[in-house]
């Protein structure tokens, strides 16, 4: 039996003293794509931030295992360098820091961690240009400050572009589809699908079936009231689309 990539065991979590997650169990094996759906405020983003180690989100009970190891004490950047990536629901604007500078630093931080040689400016640009094309991101965004003044869709493309550059082992995509036009949705989904392989696991958070038409999940879970209330296959998303969360409980 292979070690799961990600294992959440009875996870309880609080934000600013308020309990949000109340016993989440989830196992993501290498190569699997799990979709998580659920009403607004259910705790989906809380779950992503907990996995990535955001300091405001406190694990109050239970365990988070990554490749079999408890990561509760790991810093967010250690988790990132260990291969955990999150596409932000609300990507942050960072004035004064160019996307290329930032991303080259990030890519090389992970490469150092893995004992791989760092990319120099030329190599970085070459790889970056190819991957930007793949996700349909305009080339000039590389030279602008990170997300500053980017359109909603450009920000999301930038997230997936970064994922493509960082080649994580576990990717949590938090509402990557919101704000994308239909063409962009397809391009980005193709970019994500191209990254699916036997080692990589993905957790895809979305409100809409249409994303899951493109990125077909192996499993779908409904998170409501801080717990996973229902799990199923790709079909579960269709039920949600048809009858809403009310009809599921």
């Amino acid at each position: 039996m292979t070690t799961p990539l990600l294992e959440l065991k009875n996870v309880h979590a609080s934000v600013a003293g308020t309990p949000i997650l109340k016993g989440v169990n989830l196992v993501v094996n290498p190569g699997e794509v799990h979709a998580i759906m659920g009403p607004n405020g259910a705790g989906k983003s809380t779950l992503s931030k907990l996995i990535t180690g955001h300091p405001d989100y406190e694990l109050t009970e239970g365990q988070i295992l990554y490749k079999g190891e408890d990561i509760a004490e790991m810093e967010p950047d250690e988790r990132a360098r260990a291969g955990i990536f999150m596409s932000f629901q609300y990507p942050v604007e960072i004035p004064g820091v160019s996307t290329s500078f930032f991303l080259k630093a990030a890519v090389n931080a992970s490469r150092r961690e893995r004992g791989e040689p760092e990319l120099d400016a030329m190599d970085f640009l070459k790889v970056a240009r190819t991957k930007m094309k793949q996700v349909g991101m305009p080339g000039d965004l590389l030279h602008r400050a990170v997300n500053e003044g980017f359109s909603g869709g450009e920000k999301k493309k930038n997230e997936i572009f970064q994922m493509a550059m960082l080649e994580p082992t576990l990717a949590v995509l938090d509402e990557t589809d919101s704000g994308l036009d239909v063409d962009a949705l397809r391009t980005i989904s193709e970019g994500v699908n191209a990254m699916r392989n036997d080692e990589r696991g993905m957790v895809v958070i979305t409100h809409y079936q249409r994303l899951l038409d493109h990125i077909v999940p192996d499993f779908t879970h409904i998170l409501a009231g801080g717990k996973i209330v229902k799990s199923g296959g790709a079909d579960l998303a269709k039920q949600v689309e048809a009858s809403g969360y009310e009809g599921l409980a």
Binding site: H54, P55, D77, A80, F88, V92, I94, A106, A109, S110
Partner: peptide, 21 residues
């Protein structure tokens, strides 16, 4: 947090943001 989520150490992330300012 955004910079750290991409793998940059806290010190490096602080330096980059301070430099940008």
């Amino acid at each position: 947090f955004y910079l750290r989520q991409r793998g940059l150490s806290e010190k490096r992330a602080r330096s980059i943001l301070t430099y940008a300012f």
